[in-house]
Design a protein around this nucleic acid. Structure first.
Lengths: 208, 208, 208, 208
DNA sequence: CATGAATGAGGATTCATTCAT
DNA sequence: CATGAATGAATCCTCATTCAT
């Protein structure tokens, strides 16, 4: 599957396009966070981005393009930040723990962004959605690799299916902190949450 | 917290109100499923419900009321169906397993509805949202009770916090089958999914 | 070729649709006359029609629909008025003369409308244009019939081709009074114009 | 009446202005042909002309200027090509016939351009329109002169009014081949059309 | 002279909601 | 109670034009 959907810009200067789109994404995220994609106007996006509505449309073709750009950029950032702090080759339980913790912390850190993406992604057209979902799978895949590594090093005994499902669970539990914070925050601190979820996951998979 | 938000109807005949609203909810769910709340027009809802736009507004005040009614009714149905097949008093691991399985099956059964609610709830006003979230907590609470029962009967050893988080996890994993079916369905059958998740949960909490 | 392109209306009451569309056409013609189709706003059309923009769109789907309706109605009126005062069966030179005169007078009478249609028809979509052009051909065909009648009654000797071209010429000369009035009006009265054109046409085709 | 409306250019080099405007006209005609003046954007014109939007505006002040330039150039070309092949002094029926034929052929040749001008001229501002219409009158006047010559040489007997109207008719019939080609082309070849129209015109005016 | 990024007024269209019948 | 015509604020998007580089 192709990894990028190109969003067309009238402006030629690629550097400028990058700069403006970054402004745009930043402005849009905070608006989407506040009122959701549908309730946010293109005018508001333009304003929050620091330019006029005309300029906005020099860098996108459709309002939906903004959403795609936002989702794309959020995933990109999550991925980058994860890759900075994770070594999937380790193949140790400790490495797994560290990865889970790093992931949970990134998700907590980007709570707002994740929530936005989480709630608005479904507004993407049938056209753009696959690209975003694909990004998600890539991240799930990171955890699969880590688990796989542990299995290879005999640190864990898991079937291929168990690895897949467990990776999904980890991924969702990371998101959970964001999209269920209304329920979780009053009951757990982030540290508690991380520690407890890690425990559940590990006891769910380690040989006894 | 109050348990119901009353949606005002001009029509007095309460039985009729119930009938019409049921038509409405049925029509709306299938539309929301297809195009989401925002992209669905009140006209479409009226049509799908089998009456005119004027009549629609005899039974609600705002488009958002429809969403609230839909969400409310979905939760109600989930809850009812769960209560039919679960006995929270048992206090046995077997009872827990049965409850999880029942819940997962209901969620799989109502996949579409759950997805709708899941994705559109955030469009509820600050006013209505709490009522819906409260419903969710009630369901999470069912699992807490079951777990609590097991702890009391010494079938499990868990802290209060662990019970709460575990209940959340179970709840989210039930939803997961719906909102991540794009990723899960090709990898697991529902039976496999239930069996594996149950295993993870139990191994995560049973004493070794 | 089908004779009508249906323009969709949300409103069901067909009588009302007719009434509103007549208002619309009347309002639109005077605007198009003044500023052309492109420079006229849908808002202006609504206002000139005596209703709100929302109402306008209950009776059409696209701005272009207004243009189609206008063109269609103009042709319809021209045709009706012609049919009232022309008897194509006669087969006499006198009948021909009378027809030409009647036609020219109708065209002079509806000068504004004809000019509008004449200048704006090209803005119709590829979809709607044929229907309008077809209407034109029907009118040209009326003159062909009249000429044909004269030929059959031996009042004139013309080939089939000559009949066709002559009919076109008559038709265009009728329009001419409208679309070239800037040049003609200062030089000829309508009566003079009719009389002279009739003479040219007749001398162009009568046996000598 | 003044014969030219000056279109202001920021660029001083007159030769360059001429070159650029020729590029512009060429590009614009083909666009106007395809989509009409209103549906053509200045950006498209610039692109079709081979330069940037900024440059375009160095040579005009308003989009409408392009239309004026286009109309002006088309008339100029028609006029030039006619003057090459017509001698208005002759005063013979043969000369008249030759002129008509030459005119019809030029019009057929420049069909697209003529159609453009014909349909878009009305979009000219009240300011520019007279200049263009004046050009048209000059051409009509050429035919008046030719007819006048024939009258003076006793080849024809026509009143002043008849001459004027007949000249208009010839002129319009020339345009007709362009703007009614949808109806004429399937029925007549250009040669037939010329021959038949010539016959109609001549029999309409020659003494019997 | 040439470029093209920026602007924002303006335009077509939608849709929740009302209310007279 | 039911209907559906009417309303107009709100929204997305376009495009002629300007101006700094």
């Amino acid at each position: 599957m192709a990894n990028k959907r190109e969003v067309h810009a009238s402006v030629k200067d690629e550097k400028l396009v990058k700069v403006r789109r970054d402004q745009m994404i930043k402005g849009a995220v905070s608006l989407f966070k506040e009122k959701g994609f549908h309730r946010t106007t293109t005018r508001e996006i333009a304003k929050a981005s620091g330019f006029s509505i005309g300029t906005l449309y020099e860098y996108i073709e459709t309002k939906e393009d903004v959403l795609y750009l936002v989702c794309d950029s959020i995933y990109e950032e999550v991925k980058e930040r994860l890759q900075e702090s994770i070594d999937p080759k380790l193949g140790t339980i400790e490495g797994l723990k560290a990865a889970v913790e790093a992931y949970f912390r990134v998700m907590a850190d980007m709570q707002d962004e994740v929530l936005v993406m989480y709630q608005e992604a479904k507004s993407l057209s049938k056209d753009a959605l696959p690209y975003v979902l694909n990004k998600e799978l890539q991240m799930v895949h990171m955890f699969e690799e880590i688990l796989q590594g542990c299995v290879e090093k005999k640190e864990l005994t898991m079937t291929e299916s168990e690895i897949q499902l467990c990776a999904h669970n980890i991924f969702v539990q990371g998101q959970m902190w964001g999209f269920r914070r209304w329920a979780l925050k009053s009951r757990f601190s982030l540290d508690e949450y991380i520690q407890m979820q890690t425990k559940f996951v590990l006891e769910g998979i380690t040989n006894k």
